[in-house]
Design a protein around this nucleic acid. Sequence first.
DNA 1: ATTATAAATGAATAAATATTCATTTATATT
DNA 2: AATATAAATGAATATTTATTCATTTATAAT
Lengths: 203, 203
Amino acid sequence: MLLKFTDMRGRDLNKVDLVKLNAMELLVRTGFEGFTMNKLAKECKISVATLYIYYKDKDDLILQIGMEEGKRMSDIMLENFDPEVSFEEGLRQQWKNRAKCMLENPVSARFLELLRSSSYQEQIFNCIAGNFKPTLGKFMHNAINRGEINPMSLDVYWSVAFAPLYNLIRFHNEKRSIAGQAFVLTDKVLWETFGLVLKALRK
Amino acid sequence: MLLKFTDMRGRDLNKVDLVKLNAMELLVRTGFEGFTMNKLAKECKISVATLYIYYKDKDDLILQIGMEEGKRMSDIMLENFDPEVSFEEGLRQQWKNRAKCMLENPVSARFLELLRSSSYQEQIFNCIAGNFKPTLGKFMHNAINRGEINPMSLDVYWSVAFAPLYNLIRFHNEKRSIAGQAFVLTDKVLWETFGLVLKALRK
DNA sequence: ATTATAAATGAATAAATATTCATTTATATT
DNA sequence: AATATAAATGAATATTTATTCATTTATAAT
């Protein structure tokens, strides 16, 4: 319970945000192996004790920031999306949103990937999936009912529609590649790949 | 350098293997957050000090086991694969191998996923990608030269051809799903999805 | 200006963890 | 059987890391 007294010193919101940004950055840079409260405080140039004013403990810190960021990112990805538009238009909009969002927020993108492979996975995943499911489910069922795509489960749909995109973005953000040199996701490559995925799903 | 003397006591190979299996299991079960040398020793019912006979330190342990397992798994995935066969036949064989391998070795599969999102990523990934690249590259270029698929980069090919499969296997192994109940990857779903991917890639 | 309140802190403590060490044990060779 | 060698160990030590605490500082209201 958080009692609000009239004359209290306010929490420094810039500092709260600083913690959030540095926490994501440190976790992405060093992995869970290298992430410690003392290091985080040092990165922020604040006292460790302050972290314990904002968060109950280390788990709480990671989980809260993860949930917040998961919500923020999935909200951005659903912006301007109308599940009633045609299949091709809708899928294109979703690719546009997701690519933009993850390329503009590479740290957040890698941070959420990291949480997906951790003991925090379950809670984060449920939160994000729950945010997507209604809109995404409605969109897919509209497309099936209109005869634009064949019936399939939401899991299969998600895997075919988005896993290739997420993989390309991951290669791009990690400057990695199956071949030698670093992979760069250009607009050209993005929309050519979109074409392939569209062909896979459309009747 | 490992000098071999004539009369030395041999290392207990069962014990070495026990360490490997328990290390993967513990890492998968508790994440990097929960993985400690003392816990690992306890799980194996051996002394911690023994771990330091087998491995230089914790990093070395994780990295060596990761490399070994990456090599072992990618070798299994390349079994019975001839890059000269037709595109459809080759891709089908690869899906068969990968699905079989990851469904039969769920712990290894999750272990390698975990490493992919860690500071060990670079070395492991290079090792695995290096193992796949020659055969996979040759296969893709054969398909392009024969006019079975359109030209594309190896990264795009990999993303469209395999990312959906890996995602379904991940959902399956983690008993997770976008919809409510746990997702189960049946043969039917596997080969229907294969059909979609084949349609995406084939001219 | 004074006061009340919570924010923020630096330094400490407590707990967990990696790593080492002095011995003991098993085994291959003589 | 005796011996030499490395394996294996249990109990420490050293280091790192999470968490707390006694004070100080800033701010909103009077």
